[in-house]
């Protein structure tokens, strides 16, 4: 080390941090660290609260969406035509109509949040429907959904509720068929009848069916198929009970009793 190096080194070597300065720095930093940790804790707490609030909102939103999403649709057609959406808890969450008569009937009903059993009963007991059924009109009830087991259960329940009532036919079908029915502006019960009619008369349009009763449609099918006489005899037979059918939308009908 040169003389200059030595001299500078020795001179600077005399300089030391005073104990008071070190203590003051330590105390100040201790306070700052504590403040920082408190702030960090507060921030984390706030973040946690925000995350929990978001989760709650999501949960509530999800639960609401789940509750209000129909899992199964029950289509009731006699003209009026109604479609009742039923959620996973077997409660009615929507009532849709596909013609003017249906809209009128839907407006007169207060069946939202009832069980589907109560709702069906309420609909079947309306004066309009009882009058139509008394006038030998045909009522079809279709249970539509993607869960086959659930549809079968609901169909079975409806069949038992309607047992003893004449001219009522019950079916179950897959969801994709319903979408097609809605696209052409028909409820599912009428769509089934439309398919049947179309196979006999390709010129028939969905609009023509919209204002026809199920009895009129059935009679038209019978006349076109040339079996009117036979079917009349069959209807007389149905008058003694109700018809129940179940398929995947193919249009088969099975007489119940």
């Amino acid at each position: 080390m040169t003389g200059l190096n030595n001299k500078i080194h020795q001179a600077l070597q005399q300089i030391h941090a005073e104990q008071a300065l070190k203590d003051k720095t330590k105390a100040a930093l201790k306070q700052k660290i504590q403040q920082y940790e408190k702030q960090k804790y507060k921030t984390e707490k706030r973040r946690l609260v925000a995350i929990l609030a978001c989760l709650c909102l999501l949960l509530i939103g999800g639960a609401g969406w789940f509750y209000f999403t129909p899992a199964t649709t029950i289509s009731i057609d006699i003209n009026p035509s109604l479609e009742v959406g039923v959620n996973f808890f077997d409660r009615v969450v929507s009532v849709e109509s596909y013609n003017d008569d249906g809209q009128e009937l839907a407006a007169s009903l207060d069946i939202r949040f009832m069980t589907y059993a109560q709702a069906i009963q309420e609909i079947l007991e309306t004066e309009n429907i009882t009058d139509l059924l008394s006038a030998d009109e045909i009522l079809t009830i279709s249970v539509i959904g993607s869960d086959e087991q659930r549809c079968r259960r609901i169909l079975s329940d409806i069949e038992s509720y309607t047992a003893g009532q004449k001219n009522i036919y019950c079916y179950s079908a897959a969801s994709d068929e319903v979408a097609t029915a809605h696209e052409i502006g028909l409820s599912y019960g009428k769509y089934r009848a439309f398919l049947e009619l179309q196979s006999l008369d390709p010129d028939i349009t969905p609009e023509e069916l919209q204002h026809m009763t199920m009895r009129e449609i059935r009679d038209l099918i019978d006349s076109l198929s040339g079996n009117k006489q036979n079917e009349n005899a069959s209807d007389t037979h149905q008058g003694a009970g109700n018809g129940h059918g179940q398929n995947s939308g193919g249009g088969n009908r099975r007489q119940g009793r």
């Binding site: 941090a17 070190k22 720095t25």
Partner: peptide, 24 residues
Amino acid sequence: MRSEQEVNKAIERYADTVRRLCMI
């Protein structure tokens, strides 16, 4: 973030260096 113990050690070790630079 370093702990209070770590910073206290650093102060003991480097306080003189920082002090000399401050003085200059």
